[in-house]
Design a binder for these strands. Sequence first.
DNA 1: ATTCTCTATTCTGTATTCATAATTCATTTT
DNA 2: AAAATGAATTATGAATACAGAATAGAGAAT
Lengths: 227, 227
Amino acid sequence: MIKIQQNTLYGEAAARIRDMINDGTLLPGTRIPEKQLCEQFGVSRTPLREALKVLASEGMVELLPNRGARVVRLTRQMLEETYSVMGALEGLSGELACRYITEEEVADIQALHYQMMAHYKRKEIRPYFELNHRIHDAIMLAARNEVLRETHSSLNYRIQRVRYSSMIDEYWDQAVADHEAMIECLLARDGERLGSILREHLRHKLVVAAASGVIDDDPGVARSRSS
Amino acid sequence: MIKIQQNTLYGEAAARIRDMINDGTLLPGTRIPEKQLCEQFGVSRTPLREALKVLASEGMVELLPNRGARVVRLTRQMLEETYSVMGALEGLSGELACRYITEEEVADIQALHYQMMAHYKRKEIRPYFELNHRIHDAIMLAARNEVLRETHSSLNYRIQRVRYSSMIDEYWDQAVADHEAMIECLLARDGERLGSILREHLRHKLVVAAASGVIDDDPGVARSRSS
DNA sequence: ATTCTCTATTCTGTATTCATAATTCATTTT
DNA sequence: AAAATGAATTATGAATACAGAATAGAGAAT
């Protein structure tokens, strides 16, 4: 299986800027210095600016006419809105998944689940998150809806940076309980219930994210940081 | 109230290309002739290509490396997927709207509804669609979720071209019945039921669109048309 | 006559250049 | 001393120029 690599410069640039935003190299609210990034990436401004257009329609950056691009700041308002929408999408993915998922896929997810549980018991947070993500992704794939997957993925980009921010034990237990229930639903092909669990599941995540203090609601912070 | 016009050339170009796709000037599957559009719009290739990047991440066009941009062809598969996702989003909008909508907004929607009913009785299809759209938009606004609105709007762009394609009487009656029920739900603030009605409502639309023959499932058509 | 190959042309992707808007800093005025 | 004004600098938005890939067409070979 040969993978066709369509490496365009603007695509590469977009990916790298996305990463820089997620890992905190580019801070929310700060200006994105075109010239500097051009030198860093070794490309001219044309592909870089095209990349910014893409990121803008993904909601990662905002373009102010004649004032360049800024990293979008995640307000609590926006985070709540995004989680609400993602909840609806994941809920749908659960319903559809139960309709189309194969025995093999369910078995795979179960395997991932037990792996995840092992990490949970050992309080290994990173591997836990990794497995957690793969489970949700597997459900999304089982939904057999590419539009859904892309839409969800696009929203997910925006909030990546608050994802692995913190973990409260209380929430963690709840999350694991949710996952247990999810497996049950998959086995029983109970789409409706899986849907509601997934919607609720995201609601819980929001609480954690909101509590973690990654969000900057104070409009003054970003500007002062740009110096 | 002064409206700040952030008219960038690439934004203008994107809007115009979007319209050209929706009104059939640019046919699905055909290549988008950069040079020609540049001359037509009176801009250089730079802003036009930036516009294409935006449209690509909206899902209106697809960019093939070194082979330019093509108008995305709407397959039945894709249309079904899109409607499914939009159903989830509109369903959510219904739930949220019932939570946040004011008396005034409900009254406005009721007014729009009666206007729409008048057009329905006179079988004035275009004005009917117009009001129909405004009602759904008003509900979306009442949901107080900008992320939801943008996400929905972006998906809506893609399928605009099949929207006003045809109208079967049987479906029309059903749609009007749905709308009657929607008003009831809004008055009763029954978010859950409004949600399900909206989801179903979209399912019906899909049937009509699928039957209307706007979709091209044959992979050969587009290529031959590009000559 | 048909197919294959090689060349010429066209078109895309990227770099560079130019014009204009925004910002900064120094000077002046109150 | 603080604020305001204006010139210089910088950055953005758009146009042009250039390199390389893809396509089309002519000619040769079967």
